[in-house]
Design a binder for these strands. Structure first.
Lengths: 229, 229
DNA sequence: CTCTGCTATTTGATTGATCAGTCAGGACTT
DNA sequence: AAGTCCTGACTGATCAATCAAATAGCAGAG
C-alpha cells in the first residue's frame, strides 16, 4: 500500500494519485459504489478527502477513471490474444477462444505485482447494474471487444447464427461472472472441496462448461425444444 | 399501486404494509440497497417515512423481509417442481431439471397478477455481493434448494462427480443471472435481434447452453485440458 | 344507540450522523 | 515568484431513525 518506504512522507507528489485509485478500487470492490464514501477512500489511501476532489473532481469521475484504466488494460490484452489466435489466417480452437475471453481478467486479479482481484468485483457489479451511466460504461469499454469475440465465435462454430453467437457470448460472460464474484459459495455448497481461488482449475472447469454450452447452442435445436415442461 | 379505488383514502389499515414492501422492492431493484433511501421508498408507497420504521424497524429488516418473502415463494415452487419430477422413483431429463431451476424465478417476474421482475434484480445483486449479511441471506434461503438441485444433477448425469455437480450448479446460476439482470445488452450487441424480454425463447436458449455445458463437464476431461493456451 | 376507553396505525417535526463537494491558504519544487 | 500538490475547516444536503401527538376501529358499558 505504502509504495515508498518512508512512513509519514507523502512528499513524493505524483504517487498519491495512483494510491487513491488503488485505495478506491479496494473500497468500491468491497462496498459498492453507493456503499463507498469519499471519506472511507481517503482514509484507505492515507490522504485528505479534499485531495480526492483535487485529483478527480467527483466521486463519479474517480470511479470512471478506475473503470477506464482497468478495462483498457484487460481488453487490450484480450485483443492481443485474438490477434495472435487469428494471425496469418489461422482458425483457433474454441477452448483457445474461451481462454482468451477469460484469462486476462483472471490474471489481473492474481498477478502478485498488481493488486488483488478487486476490479473483478467492480466489473461484476457494473455488468449487472441497471443504472444508465454504469450501463454506458460497459457499452463504451466492453462492447467493442464483445463484437470481436462474437465474430470469432461465428468463425469457430460455422453453423451458428449471429443471434446464437450473441447469446453464447452473453451466457459465457455470465459463467465468468461467477468466477469473478468470488463469493465462496462453491466452497460452502461442497463442504470445502470446490475452491474458487484455484484459478487454473477453475478456468478448466469453466472452459469445459462454456465450450459444451456453445457447441450445444450451435448444433442442437433438439436439445432446447425438449425443455418446455 | 392504489389497491382500493378511492383516491386519497389510506383508510384501509393493513394494506400499507404490503404497499411498502412492493414499493421498496421496486426502489431496491432500481437503485440497489445502498442507493435507495427510506425517503424514496416512502414517497413511492405514498406513506410517511416514519411508517416504514413502524412496520419494519430498520431499512435492513425491510430488505430482509422482502428477500425472505420472495425467496420462500420462489424456492417453494422450485421444490414442488423437484418433488413432481422425482415422484414415484422417476428420473427426469436434464432439460426438465434445468427448467425447474429457472422457471419459477422467471415466472414470478412475468406473472401479470404479481408485480414486475423487480425481485430478479435484487437477487442478482445479492448473489454477487461481498457483504457478509447479504451472503448470509443467500446461504439461508438458497443453499438448501441448491443442495437438492446438485443431488438431482448427480442422479441425471450418473458419471459426474459431486464437485463437478457443484460447479455445474454454480455456472448454471451464473447463466441464469444474465437473464434476470435484464440489462438489454443482448439487444445492443445484436442490433435488436436478441430480445431478452422474450422469456420463453430465452429459456430455450439458456436450456440448450446449460444442458450442453453440464454434459460437457460431466463427460469430457478432454475438452477442458486442451484449454491451457 | 351512544358514550368511553383501548389498541393499532399513521404522521409531522426533529435528531445527530454522515454525505459529496468547496475554499482559502500552506508547503514544497523549480 | 510561479505553479503544483495538499490539507483543515467548512457548507448545505441528505441520511436512517425517533418521538409525541393525532386518528381510526373496535370493544364493552350504560
Amino acid at each position: 500500500m505504502n509504495v515508498t518506504g518512508s512512513p509519514s512522507a507523502n512528499r513524493s507528489a505524483p504517487d498519491n494519485r495512483e494510491a487513491i485509485m488503488l485505495a478506491a478500487e479496494r473500497v468500491f470492490a468491497k462496498d459498492g459504489y453507493d456503499g463507498s464514501s469519499m471519506r472511507d477512500i481517503a482514509k484507505e489511501a492515507n490522504v485528505s478527502q479534499a485531495l480526492l476532489h483535487y485529483h478527480f473532481g467527483t466521486k463519479e469521475k474517480l470511479f470512471d477513471e478506475i473503470f477506464r484504466f482497468r478495462a483498457t488494460e484487460i481488453n487490450g490484452e484480450r485483443g492481443r490474444h485474438l490477434d495472435r489466435l487469428f494471425a496469418d489466417g489461422a482458425t483457433p480452437s474454441l477452448p483457445q477462444l474461451v481462454d482468451a475471453l477469460f484469462r486476462p481478467t483472471v490474471e489481473l486479479g492474481h498477478d502478485p505485482d498488481r493488486f488483488g482481484n478487486f476490479f473483478s468485483r467492480i466489473l461484476v457489479a457494473a455488468a449487472n447494474s441497471d443504472d444508465p451511466h454504469t450501463k454506458n460504461l460497459i457499452a463504451q469499454h466492453y462492447d467493442g471487444i464483445a463484437q470481436r469475440f462474437i465474430a470469432a465465435f461465428q468463425k469457430v462454430l460455422p453453423g451458428i447464427s449471429h443471434e446464437d453467437a450473441v447469446w453464447a457470448y452473453i451466457f459465457s460472460i455470465g459463467v465468468g461472472m461467477t468466477m469473478m464474484a468470488r463469493t465462496g459459495r462453491s466452497a460452502r455448497l461442497s463442504n470445502g472441496s470446490c475452491d474458487d481461488s484455484n484459478v487454473e482449475l477453475l478456468l478448466q472447469k469453466i472452459s469445459a462448461f462454456v465450450c459444451g454450452g456453445m457447441n450445444s447452442l450451435a448444433g442442437a435445436v433438439e436439445n432446447a425444444v425438449a425443455s418446455s415442461r
